[in-house]
């Protein structure tokens, strides 16, 4: 029995990756939940919004790399390009709002119509992204690859198991924490932030109080652009960028937002981690961890993997269905879909 090695293996393959993935999902889900709270519809285009912002960031990163940059110290160059990506994404979102959503808002369209409309926006955004950057896998990370590599860890501790902590994972966790802190400060402490919560709470009363709906909507899109692009770039640095993958990310992100409670920022964060940990835990082969825990001859023959990684989306789906049946308002009492 070797508890320490078992834990290190568990941390290396489940704890750290799931935490980073959870932070990425949480940032994505925050954008979804924000749009739901303010504009009252589930934004199907969110995955491709992330792709759009990330695409611009990648192009700028390549430009910087072409000029000879190779990371900002140990950090990736993409961090420098991120503000440009956010700005471009914000312009794109405001343009879609002006051209598409504003019309339906003026008609007081039902939320379900806006959902379908956002699907149209999704197809267009998706097309633009594929047209500009192509459908292939793109890598754009540079700088130091590891904070702690598996080999360094083994040499440091003398343990049999290695533990790798990549820069992208550390960066994801730090950036996500900062972004969330900023968002909560904004929503709870500033006049504009409070007016957004008021608008989300009771639209008519907000109008009676003199809150300008168009301004609230604009700020919501701007914040969504920042969150979506940041989430997309962190995911891309951690894994890689491919338009189709980002489209697929929509499912776990939605599951996270709904599990947490749509319209609840706190719920979106909790939901992100619930989904990430479920997905990674269910698809991880526990054989190694278990064999450390028991005597060698008890070591299992199988992989002890509940579900192949090919089916990881089934986890999000299953959680989504269970939550919608038994607790439609989510963990943090948001609004039901």
């Amino acid at each position: 029995m070797d508890l320490l090695n078992a834990f290190v293996a568990f941390a290396n393959f489940v704890l750290i990756p799931a935490t980073a993935y959870g932070a990425q999902l949480a940032l994505g889900a925050l954008g979804v939940t924000l749009i739901y709270g303010i504009l009252r519809f589930s934004n199907i285009a969110h995955g491709d919004t992330m792709a759009f912002g990330t695409m611009v960031t990648i192009l700028v990163t390549w430009g910087l790399q072409g000029m000879g940059m190779d990371g900002i110290g140990p950090l990736p160059t993409a961090l420098l390009a991120l503000p440009v990506g956010i700005a471009a994404c914000a312009l794109w979102l405001l343009a879609t709002d002006r051209v598409v959503y504003r019309f339906y808002r003026a008609q007081k369209a039902a939320p379900v119509i806006l959902v379908i409309v956002s699907m149209g926006v999704m197809f267009v955004t998706n097309g633009v992204v594929r047209f500009v950057i192509g459908t292939d896998d793109q890598r754009f990370s540079d700088g130091e690859r590891f904070i702690i590599s598996a080999r360094t860890f083994r040499e440091m501790t003398g343990l049999e198991e290695g533990l790798a902590f990549r820069t992208s994972q550390g960066l994801t966790i730090v950036v996500a924490a900062v972004a969330v802190a900023l968002l909560f400060w904004f929503l709870n402490r500033t006049r504009t932030g409070k007016s957004m919560r008021a608008f989300s709470d009771n639209e008519d009363l907000a109008l009676l109080s003199g809150i300008n709906p168009e301004r609230v909507v604009m700020v919501a899109w701007l914040i969504t652009a920042a969150l979506a692009t940041t989430a997309g770039v962190l995911y891309g640095l951690d894994k890689s960028f491919m338009p189709f993958t980002y489209f697929q990310l929509l499912l776990p992100i939605f599951a996270a937002a709904v599990v947490g409670g749509l319209g609840s920022p706190l719920g979106a964060i909790a939901g992100g981690f619930v989904i990430a940990f479920s997905e990674v835990t269910v698809t991880y082969a526990f054989r190694k961890v278990v064999s450390y825990l028991g005597p060698e001859e008890w070591s299992p023959d199988g992989l002890l993997q509940l579900l192949s990684t090919d089916y990881k989306f089934a986890v999000s789906f299953a959680i989504l269905v269970i939550v919608l049946i038994y607790r439609p308002t989510g963990l943090f009492r948001g609004k039901a879909v």
């Binding site: 006049r191 409070k194 007016s195 919560r197 008021a198 989300s200 709470d201 009771n202 009363l205 907000a206 109080s209 003199g210 809150i211």
Partner: peptide, 16 residues
Amino acid sequence: IFTSMTVEENLEMGAF
């Protein structure tokens, strides 16, 4: 009223 906001925030919003 804004049910999810504090009493003080309700008043602040009234004076928006």
